[in-house]
Write a protein that binds this DNA or RNA. Sequence first.
DNA 1: TGCCAAGTGGAGGAATCCTCCATATTTTAA
DNA 2: TTAAAATATGGAGGATTCCTCCACTTGGCA
Lengths: 191, 191
Amino acid sequence: MADPARPLRADARRKREAIVEAAKDVLAEWGADVPLDHVAKRAGVGIATLYRHFPTREELIAGVYLSEIDPLCDTLDDLLAAMPADRALTTWMRRFVRHVGSKPCMPLAVKSIIAPDGPAVVRPAHDRLLTTVTHLVRTGERAGVFREGVVPEDLLMAMTGFCLASDRTDLPDQGDRVVLMLVDGMRPREV
Amino acid sequence: MADPARPLRADARRKREAIVEAAKDVLAEWGADVPLDHVAKRAGVGIATLYRHFPTREELIAGVYLSEIDPLCDTLDDLLAAMPADRALTTWMRRFVRHVGSKPCMPLAVKSIIAPDGPAVVRPAHDRLLTTVTHLVRTGERAGVFREGVVPEDLLMAMTGFCLASDRTDLPDQGDRVVLMLVDGMRPREV
DNA sequence: TGCCAAGTGGAGGAATCCTCCATATTTTAA
DNA sequence: TTAAAATATGGAGGATTCCTCCACTTGGCA
């Protein structure tokens, strides 16, 4: 790990993936506070190896759910092709909230991912997410269905926060309603 | 602690208050993960006493910030007397978000407080908060500035979530914007 | 093939958790 | 007022978890 840009050695990459895979199971089963040697054990890896790849619990949790971001963002084009921007944003945000809220540790992971100063590993996911929301918002602005000046980060923060706070109580109805409020709150105000 | 309804013995009440006072300082200084014996030490109390009064960390943290809820809710009448319901709700929500977001562990405490199945100690604060928001929402509904059927719990969840996710980054501007979106999202839709 | 940078495992000291129970204090009632 | 009963206390200590350190192993390159 001298040069952060150098690709991992083949065995190291394999172990890293094993850790992520194991952590996915163990986090789902035990929650975010699971002892990290459970993860190491299940991955068939020494505890030091786990710590080398993921120096903090936060980075491990973020690492586990990183791969869930892209598929979510991939739906963007289809949505925009199929419906007007306001409905597209609503639909996308509802999917986001449902999906993020559906796994016990995922809101925590997404919190790291959207944080402006999160760990370096989450950077690509951070950018992807922000780009996606920004695109939806700007498209709606240009179409006149949203007022100008809405800050995409605000939406990400509000959605992620909702998932953090609700801990899967009442979902998905409550999530749907909150998303609706946020999106309706972006429409132009008839003065 | 046999009968939960029986009032505490005088010395026990004094120690409980000392614990809350100490925890307030220590949590602010060290964050939510502070070792609990630091709290006990600062309160001049044995660790067992702390555990007897607050069996879980969650209950301790909630207990510390319980007393901040009432003052916030006390402003309700003045607000409603001074301005229309939509502005009153906006103002109140902004105060809430600013205040809850201003202390490192308070969002966590409020998460317990608003949870539908939180610990028993938080019940009065829970009810007070819900009553306050409900009153603001219903007043606006009757005045026709909000559409019907807005669920007050949704607002509490969204505000608390925002505080949890944002960790005091960007506050207070971002908080103000998110509150505005939520409140505007409650207005009647001109179809 | 042999070298070395990169990667590994797990022992073990330090920190923290949380229960248990002998002791101390308050309250009650006679 | 006093003594018994009810309540509350402190901190020792076993169990758990954290996380670093370093002697050893392995993959990649010349």
